[in-house]
Nucleic acid binder design. Structure first.
Length: 528
RNA sequence: GUCCUCGUAGCUCAGCAGGAUAGAGCACUUGAUUCCUAAUCAAGAGGUCACAAGUUCGAAUCUUGUCGGGGACACCA
């Protein structure tokens, strides 16, 4: 819709301009302040320029009215134009709000260490990533989702050790000397019991078995994480194992060497990341020959770029902030365009319950488990809350608010609008087929504005995706729902002379709500 | 200390690449139901957009500085 309007205006104005939405729809549906920027060029008052420009649109069929006000040019769409688009959308619901984009994108997110269940912070990145994935695909991009599994390194050994010691203490009932660092939480004890079943309790008798437990525990945790994700509607195309990448280290290392971006010092191999804006050079291989975490990421990104995507998006926890520079440096050193990699940081989450801090699960040790929150408020509310705030600000919310069944709870409010449309159709006895070809004409401003708002979904989706600002979609849905509730309260539909027209508009609103929610991974309710 | 990020209503937050009178929800006050779900709606009150300077027709938005919150500054992942 917007594209068509843009082109049409461009034809008349014969220059670039900014199209925006007026704050108040009573001005018009779209507006442009182009006269202000022309004022200087033409040495004329913006008010006069706007008036002259507005006259050019008198014969345009898309617009019912184009007027100049205080230097702004306001465009009001015609009934015909809105009707045509609505009729098409209702008849082609699957195609609605889609677009053609042929870019390919590799989207990496979650990538939580397989050493424990997902906590609430992981969930935020997970939901945002999954939604971007859905949005991108809807808009025609080829989006591949990927989870990078950190199955190499100390934390996996630590997991094995933790299970081993928990087994000694709880299964064998031995006195255990706990090291300073280990994974706490009842899930470790659960794993120990599980291990004594899967193997037998002798496994806790020999330290050599720690390695076996590490590997086994990691697989168990990965399975649990997959389940956690599935519970909130997320499935990945691919899981990439860090460990499996190390075979390719020589290949990546050779590239770096060829570009003279590595050097040896104190028996360690360093990368010259400070050449690329990083604070200092970083070690990639330690003096004992073990690779660092960065080495894994170098191989991984080499691997990613070899697969030839147009764009790469990583969603990381905000604590990885300092890590961006060195990864980008490495990508550049490998000979790739680091500008294709975009990193979204998901900030911390604090939870309240009834105004008090949400209590941490004993199962997790010292994190709030995602699954506990899902149990509390359900997957839809969880997804919605994470999608209603910018990724890069701290988020604080109270789970009690999301349990309520009234307008306090935005997801409820939106669903209610959808259900309302459904109920009205039922009450009227009419079906979508009955109304889809009804001509929308002579609409009053309220009806027209409601319809117009519903038709904004396609541009909201494009804007949401291209800006990666997921909250724009949820904000839009809340305001669309508010528009519907308002209209409903002011206008009787069933039995009125405009019944069929209004039903068609309502159907359009419902379609937009449904489509928007679907892209957020939430299914719209038909009945409440 | 360096870098990043945030600072908008009592609270939680929107405000898109600078544009018309500063927005929503919650909480608070008042009102609306013989009629499609009142699970809703309407009205009211609530703001020095942290502060200062700059850029310009025009700044919550851009620049610089100050103050305050949070985060990052590993051969951990």
């Amino acid at each position: 819709m917007k594209r068509k309007i843009n082109n049409s205006i461009k034809n008349e104005l014969e220059r670039e301009f900014i199209l925006e939405k007026p704050k108040d729809l009573s001005f018009g549906h779209y507006a442009t302040p182009v006269a202000f920027s022309l004022a200087k060029e033409l040495r004329k008052s913006p008010i006069l320029i706007a008036e002259e420009l507005a006259k050019k649109f008198e014969k345009n069929e898309i617009f019912e009215d184009v007027n100049a006000l205080k230097g702004y040019i306001n465009f009001k769409l015609s009934d015909d134009f809105l009707d045509e688009y609505t009729t098409w959308a209702i008849a082609n619901q699957e195609e609605y709000a889609k677009a053609k984009n042929d870019e390919s994108i590799l989207l990496e997110f979650v990538s939580a260490n397989p050493t424990g269940p997902l906590h609430i912070g992981h969930a935020r990145g997970a939901v945002i990533g999954d939604t971007l994935c859905r949005l991108g695909r809807h808009l025609g991009y080829r989006v591949d989702s990927e989870y990078y599994v950190n199955d190499a390194g100390n934390q996996i050994a630590l997991l094995g050790l933790s299970i081993f010691l928990a087994g000694q203490e709880n299964v064998l009932k031995l006195e255990v000397d706990w090291p300073q660092e280990y994974y706490r939480g009842e899930y470790i004890v659960d794993l120990a019991f599980r291990a004594s079943e899967d193997f037998n309790e002798d496994i806790f008798k020999n330290k050599k078995n720690i390695e076996i437990l590490s590997d086994w525990g990691k697989d168990m945790m990965l399975e649990l994480i997959r389940e956690n994700l599935k519970d909130i509607g997320i499935e990945f195309d691919k899981f990439v194992s860090e460990k499996s990448l190390y075979d390719k280290w020589d290949e990546s290392f050779t590239k770096l060497q060829k570009n003279d971006k590595t050097y040896k010092l104190d028996d360690k191999i360093w990368i010259r990341s400070s050449d690329f804006g990083d604070e200092k050079d970083r070690v990639v291989v330690r003096d004992d020959g073990r690779a660092t975490y960065l080495a894994g990421d170098i191989i991984y990104h080499d691997n990613k770029y070899q697969r030839g995507f147009d764009r790469y998006i990583n969603i990381w926890g905000a604590d990885h902030h300092g890590y961006i520079a060195r990864v980008k440096a490495a990508i550049n050193f490998l000979g790739y365009d680091e500008g294709k990699l975009e990193i979204i940081l998901a900030q911390m989450v604090s939870l309240l319950k009834g105004g008090e801090p949400f209590k941490m699960s004993k199962r997790s040790g010292n994190f709030i488990l995602m699954s506990d929150v899902v149990d509390e408020i359900g997957k839809d509310a969880l997804r919605f809350i994470f999608l209603s705030k910018k990724a890069d600000t701290h988020l604080e919310f109270d789970v009690d608010m999301l349990k309520k069944q009234d307008s306090t709870n935005p997801i409820f409010y939106i669903n209610y609008a959808h259900a309302r449309v459904n109920q009205i159709f039922k009450k009227s006895g009419k079906t979508l087929e009955d109304v889809q070809d009804v001509k929308l004409e002579n609409l009053n401003d309220n009806a027209k504005n409601l319809l117009f708002t519903a038709l904004l979904l396609p541009e909201v989706i494009e804007d949401t995706f291209s800006s990666r600002q997921v909250q724009r979609l949820s904000d839009f849905l809340v305001s669309l729902a508010a528009n519907l509730h308002k209209f409903y309260n002011e206008n009787r539909v069933v039995g009125s002379e405009n019944e069929e027209k209004y039903l068609k508009i309502f159907a359009m609103v419902a379609l937009s709500v449904r489509t928007g929610l679907k892209l957020m991974g939430i299914e719209a309710k038909n009945k409440m």
